[in-house]
Design a protein around this nucleic acid. Structure first.
Length: 426
RNA sequence: GGAGGGAUGGCAGAGCGGACGAAUGCGACGGUCUUGAAAACCGUUGGGCCUUCACGGGUCCCGGGGGUUCGAAUCCCCCUCCCUCCGCCA
């Protein structure tokens, strides 16, 4: 959520930021007008309340002095003011709702450094690392869904029987590979990041805090009977972990790592990436996330990015780092770097991690605050996060890259500790 | 699922229609004393919104929402959450 005071005091700055995203800024003018009206109403309402309080205190004093019979006129006057106060209060509440509804749907302002652009095509490739994409051998040019079928490590057909299309089931060494990847990602981050195992079903407020609701309802699984939402990422529960709390400055930054299942309806992408593991409704992901002061945000963004990148690099992948443009960053983000791994079999770059800085956008929604070092008042935190490892696409790229001439898949060195001596799959 | 009990400041815990944003204790912070520390004593100690260049002023918040009243932490209604017992269950 954007700061209403910023909208009020620097409307042009906010308008310019939203325009960089290609966002319609007329909502902003509505908000500004509603806010002005709201403030003048509440000022009048508060004035009435002050009068009512004064009168009531006078009535109370008369009662104490056994002069209750003199209170009638005062009570009458107060009653009249009360009626008016009630009316203004209702109007004020309605306006507040109108404002909040609009604010909740406005996206974050992009960071100054965020490259301008209209969409995916304008993202900036920061660097490309690892073996050249054209250096892969013919035996690596087999799509993972074919490799997986040959080796019996993925059972899409039966997953569809159980749950429908775009659900998958890993078997045998395939399942073990899922577990190994997750454990690797956790183990590499628990040095600094507190390991959390959060709930995967959450309340509406929790989904609103990260920006996944109300705007993206169609993307989320909802359990109507209990009014709970299945999380699309551990970012959701982790961001609400400190909700409505005030952190002490010396405790910052706070860092968390969590492995969870993630659930996505993928409503807008019917018929897209239907083969294999490129797009599924349920998957495992290890997420790292931090709360910090605005001053700490830049360093943490670099730190999280480095952690996400190094695991991909050390797994031996060809990957590229993208600086997402204003037209492609997520709704809640101010700046995002994507890591894309090259999958030689599918011959595609697969997005395996998104490392984002949300400035105070999510923190304001979640009411995440801290007490600054100088001890005066409270200030809104910043949040950042990134996928330490998202299973399906890494799994897919891995079986393609590590496929050997005999059709088996080698277990990367980094993962061997989790395979109890097993060095090949197949 | 059934039956009871509860929700007040960082914590503990009073208040049960008027002077209550809220006693008291603990904790924390500042000070006096001390070579230093402890003890003792004194003081400070929530948050939101609006307004003000500022000092300040106004208003709201005692789990959440509604109601009664001139006036609600206190009375009434609804909801949520927590605890205890019973049932069920991994």
């Amino acid at each position: 959520m954007l700061d209403l005071r910023l909208i009020r005091n620097e409307p042009d700055l906010v308008r310019a930021g939203l325009a960089r995203r290609g966002e319609d800024t007329s909502v902003l003018d509505e908000v500004i007008a509603l806010d002005a009206e709201h403030r003048s109403l509440t000022a009048r309402r508060d004035g009435l309340r002050a009068e009512i309080r004064t009168i009531s205190n006078q009535v109370g004093a008369l009662h104490r002095e056994q002069r209750a019979d003199e209170a009638g006129a005062l009570q009458e006057a107060s009653r009249a003011l009360g009626a008016e106060e009630k009316e203004l209060d209702a109007l004020s509440d309605a306006l507040q709702d109108e404002i909040t509804q609009r604010l909740l749907r406005l996206p974050n302002l992009p960071a100054a450094e965020c490259p301008d652009g209209d969409g995916e095509a304008d993202n900036v490739v920061v660097r490309v690392e690892g073996p050249a994409p054209d250096s892969y051998q013919p035996y690596q040019r087999v799509p993972h869904w074919e490799i997986a079928e040959q080796l019996g490590i993925l059972d899409v057909e039966r997953a569809v029987k159980l749950s429908g299309s775009m659900f998958v089931m890993y078997r045998g060494a395939g399942a073990r590979l899922v577990r190994a990847l997750c454990q690797l990602a956790i183990d590499r981050n628990v040095d600094l990041y507190e390991e959390i195992r959060p709930p995967t079903l959450v309340r509406t407020d929790t989904m609103v805090s990260t920006g996944h609701l109300p705007k993206f309802v169609d993307e989320a699984y909802h359990m109507e009977r209990d009014d709970l939402w299945a999380i699309p990422t551990a970012e959701v529960p982790l961001t609400s972990l400190g909700r409505d709390e005030i952190a002490a400055a010396p405790d910052l930054p706070r860092r968390f790592v969590a492995h969870t299942s993630c659930f996505r309806r993928e409503a807008g992408s019917a018929g897209k990436d239907t083969r294999g593991l490129l797009r599924v409704h349920e998957f495992d992901k290890v997420e790292i996330l931090a709360y910090c002061t605005p001053d700490q945000a830049a360093d943490l963004h670099a730190e999280i990015l480095h952690r996400a990148e190094s695991i991909i690099a050390e797994l031996g992948f060809t990957y590229r780092l993208l600086d997402l443009c204003t037209g492609d960053i997520g709704n809640s983000a101010a700046r995002t770097f994507d890591i894309e791994v090259y999958a030689p079999g599918a011959d595609q770059w697969l997005e395996v991690s998104s490392v984002s800085w949300f400035s105070d956008y999510q923190a304001r929604r979640a009411n995440l605050r801290y007490r600054p070092e100088d001890g005066t008042g409270t200030a809104v935190l910043h949040t950042l996060n990134g996928s330490a490892l998202a299973v399906p696409r890494v799994w897919a790229a891995l079986v393609e890259v590590y496929r050997q001439p005999d059709g088996t898949v080698a277990v990367p060195e980094l993962l061997q500790p989790y395979f109890r001596g097993q060095t090949t799959i197949g």
